[in-house]
């Protein structure tokens, strides 16, 4: 007892440190929101998306190997602000993605500017070759709502075979599957 007692402050400090280092939201699975996620896009995602099929890495890999689905990477990429002084170093991070995937950046925000929305619609039309029943697999990274939003949006456009792969590039990489430099949709 005495030992325990003596260590109590140290234990308390350790717990405090752990709590500070790992916000309690991490590790918890939030429920599905009614609408789109509007902020804090890098945070734990729900387990489900109504109307879509959720894939784990094995499921995503199986579908990828059939070659019958289009993989849509929804990782955002910032655009250089138009009025940034010309000498400013601008280096948007490069991005490795699932081979064959089409990268449609910025289509997973909660609300889209009209031009982003049409970019997304056109990108999906091209990926599906106009077939609304074509399988579409949406992904970005783990704990990234961009793919969830994008997949939900595609359901709203009435695509009928929507898959969501929440582990995304992180899960793909962890499984030792190949990656290649992402190709942005036109």
């Amino acid at each position: 007892m005495r030992v325990l007692h003596r260590n109590a402050p140290a234990f308390g400090l350790a717990m405090l440190a752990w709590i500070l280092a790992a916000p309690c939201t991490y590790g918890q699975v939030p429920p599905e929101p009614e609408g789109y996620r509007l902020k804090d896009y890098r945070a734990p995602t729900p387990a489900t998306l109504r109307g879509a099929t959720v894939l784990d890495t094995a499921g995503a890999e199986a579908l990828w190997r059939t070659g019958s689905a289009s993989f849509i990477d929804a990782l955002p990429q910032p655009e250089r602000p138009a009025n940034l002084p010309p000498g400013t170093l601008w280096h948007p991070p490069s991005h490795a993605s699932i081979p064959g995937a089409v990268w449609l950046p910025n289509v997973g925000f909660g609300e889209l500017a009209p031009e982003t929305e049409s970019y997304f619609r056109n990108g999906l039309t091209a990926a599906s070759q106009g077939n609304m029943a074509h399988a579409l697999v949406f992904f970005c990274l783990r704990n990234c709502w961009m793919s969830w939003n994008a997949a939900k949006r595609a359901l709203g456009y009435r695509y009928s075979a929507v898959y969501w792969y929440p582990d995304g590039v992180d899960g793909w990489k962890a499984a030792g599957l190949p990656l290649e430099e992402a190709r942005k949709g036109p």
């Binding site: 910032p78 655009e79 250089r80 602000p81 138009a82 002084p85 609300e111 889209l112 500017a113 009209p114």
Partner: peptide, 20 residues
């Protein structure tokens, strides 16, 4: 302003405006 922040009403990016 970073120039990467979206205006919540117009959905357009607020131009970069910063102390240099």
């Amino acid at each position: 302003y970073s120039g990467m922040q979206m205006d919540q009403v117009t959905r357009l990016y607020t131009p970069a405006w910063f102390v240099e």
